[in-house]
Simulated assay, not measured.
Amino acid sequence: MSRSMLPLTISHRLFLVRHGETDWNREGRLQGSKDIPLNELGREQAAEAAGRLRSLVQGYDGLDFVASPMERARETMEILRYRLGLPPKAYRIDERLRELTFGTWEGFTWREVRKSEREQALARERDKWSFVPPEGESYRMLAERIRPVLETLTGETVMVSHGGVARAVLALVGAVAPGDAAMVDIWQGKILKVSDGRVSWV
């Protein structure tokens, strides 16, 4: 096993929030690096995540808030912070928390990809963790990108990012085998709590 996939221990609680729904989510389109804004349901899901976080912590002074630079993640974070009574824009952005890039497949649905690039799609189904889409990146590459972010967390953290990032986190902390992590459903509007190697949905 490479160092990048040795189980990582996060000593402080991590509250991981996937951004709310976008129109491309609703249509089943691969977003990846495309900057698609939240839709109305996505904004409601961001507010729902704020309510869930409120039930998990006693106060917000000791929390670090960090988000992906992508618009859908930043909007989710700002709605969440507003609902908590915090200054909406007072949070960190970390470029490494960007979503997994699907390269030339972005904008297409999986049905369209399977029809136009059948062999590539089948190869991905055989190994979702390591498969690299044309001009894109694999979950393995994503995990290597975000591992340093997790290694440098200094306290309880609220992280607003993406489904792919959440799957990589599950693998990095040893909660799910890498090959299985790539297939885990990551819910919008809920919070994935990571604590002492254990994960739970709230």
Score class of each variant (00 low, 15 high):
Leu192Trp: 09
Lys193Tyr: 02
Leu16Phe: 07
Lys190Cys: 02
Leu170Trp: 00
Asp64Phe: 08
Ala143Ser: 01
Gly59Cys: 11
Thr22Pro: 10
Ile10Gly: 03
Arg124Tyr: 04
Lys128Trp: 11
Glu78Pro: 06
Ser68Phe: 13
Leu53Asn: 01
Arg13Phe: 04
Phe102Pro: 09
Arg114Val: 07
Thr104Leu: 14
Gly179Asp: 10
Glu156Tyr: 11
Asn25His: 00
Leu153Tyr: 12
Lys34Ser: 14
Leu86Cys: 08
Glu21Ala: 14
Ile93Met: 03
Ser4Gly: 04
Ile191Val: 15
Leu14Asn: 06
Gly189Leu: 03
Gly107Met: 14
Ser200Asn: 05
Pro178Met: 08
Asp196Gly: 02
Val132Tyr: 03
Tyr82Phe: 10
Leu142Phe: 12
Arg81Gly: 08
Val184Asn: 06
Gly155Asn: 04
Gly197Asp: 01
Leu172Phe: 06
Lys190Gly: 00
Arg81Cys: 04
Leu30Gln: 00
Lys193Phe: 04
Met77Ala: 11
Ala177Thr: 09
Thr152His: 13
Ile10Lys: 03
Ile79Tyr: 01
Glu44Cys: 05
Ser195Tyr: 12
Pro88Cys: 06
Ser130Ala: 11
Arg74Glu: 01
Leu80Gln: 10
Gly197His: 03
Lys115Thr: 13
Trp110Asp: 03
Arg114Met: 13
Asp127His: 05
Gly85Trp: 13
Arg124Asp: 00
Ala181Asn: 10
Lys34Ile: 00
Gly62His: 15
Pro178Leu: 10
His162Cys: 12
Thr109Asp: 04
Val173Tyr: 00
Gly174Lys: 07
Met183Gln: 10
Thr101Met: 07
Ala182Asp: 11
Leu8Ser: 08
Leu172Cys: 02
Phe131Cys: 04
Arg126Ala: 13
Val66Arg: 01
Asp196Lys: 14
Gly42Met: 06
Leu192Ile: 05
Val132Asn: 11
Arg96Trp: 09
Lys115Gly: 09
Phe15Asp: 03
Leu84Glu: 12
Asn25Lys: 13
Ser130Lys: 08
Pro37Arg: 10
Glu106Ala: 13
Arg29Gly: 12
Asp35Ile: 11
Arg92Phe: 08
Asp64Met: 07
Leu122Phe: 10
Val132Trp: 08
Val160Ala: 08
Pro7Leu: 09
Phe15Ile: 06
Glu21Thr: 10
Pro88Phe: 11
Ala47Trp: 07
Asp35Gly: 05
Leu30Thr: 03
Asp180Cys: 05
Phe102Val: 12
Glu40Ser: 11
Ile186Val: 15
Pro69Met: 13
Pro148Cys: 11
Gln45Met: 05
Ser161Asn: 08
Leu6Cys: 11
Ala123Asn: 10
Lys128Ile: 06
Leu142Ser: 02
Gln31Ala: 00
Leu53Ala: 00
Asp64Ser: 13
Ile10Trp: 03
Gly62Ala: 14
Glu137Val: 06
Val149Cys: 09
Gln45Val: 05
Thr154His: 11
Glu125Tyr: 09
Met5Phe: 14
Leu38Asp: 08
Gly107Ser: 14
Val169Phe: 03
Val184Ala: 07
Asp180Glu: 15
Ala73Leu: 12
Met159Ser: 05
Glu106Asp: 14
Arg72Val: 08
Asn25Glu: 02
